[in-house]
Amino acid sequence: MLAIQYKAAQSLDEAVTLLATTAGARALAGGHTLLLEPTRSQLGAATLVDLGKIQGLNDIGFTRTGALRIGAMTTIAALADNADIQRDLPALAEAASQVGDPQVRNWATLGGSLADNDPESDLTAVLLALDAQLHLQGPNGTRAVAADQFITGPRQTALTQGELITDVRIPIVGGGSAYEKFKHPATLYALCGVAAHVSLIDGKVGACRVAVTGATEYATRLTGVEAALAGQEPTAEAIAAASEAASGLAFRGDPFGSPEYRAHLTRVLVQRAVTRAVERAR
């Protein structure tokens, strides 16, 4: 704790340079992971590069291709309260409104909640289900990475040293989406969370993406569920049957939920999220 250094970056370029050239540098966004235990005591002699003063990192707006572009420093509360998100991406608004508590939502950021690939983060699953693109900027320039490729393993991401998330772009493709969460009673994070996006073609499931968080080591697409739903008429029976395909994953456990219980919750929440997504798609 004592050894932490601090730099407020004035621009994205400065932040990237600082992060790339300072040993042990970490980006500081809302600080609601970094500055709290148990993370804080692991910071050692890190230099924290504050992104808070950089202009333009918290805008929400449509791109020319009709995707919603959300700056990495957008707070979770701003996501929850944004009318475009509420209308077009209800799963994201629902997830954001259920993150932690009001104070956390006020200051924690979109970028910060993605960058660590925290296994209990709500938003990772939502971005998987909504097929989001993460735009990154690093010492070698900018690139876009699909959420599927961004998450690479337990607490691992495609981010390289010095690279930052600048914004997230989510295509608005019609259909319906929903997020279902079972709160961890102590942390308020997701003990299990499921995000679903469904579009219907002639009353049958067309494109469909479903992802789970909290229950697994990292947010994971439930491709088995997606496959089971594809082309089906989304009746309660069909959805229930498809939820059974949410299996074969490595589930996490703690005193508030064993791996078996989280596996079960995943199936239940898949049914609930898909059912609501279908209703919205109709």
Partner: peptide
């Protein structure tokens, strides 16, 4: 088992 309010509800 519980050492903090993250582990004690």
């Amino acid at each position: 088992v519980a050492n903090s309010l993250r582990e004690y509800a």
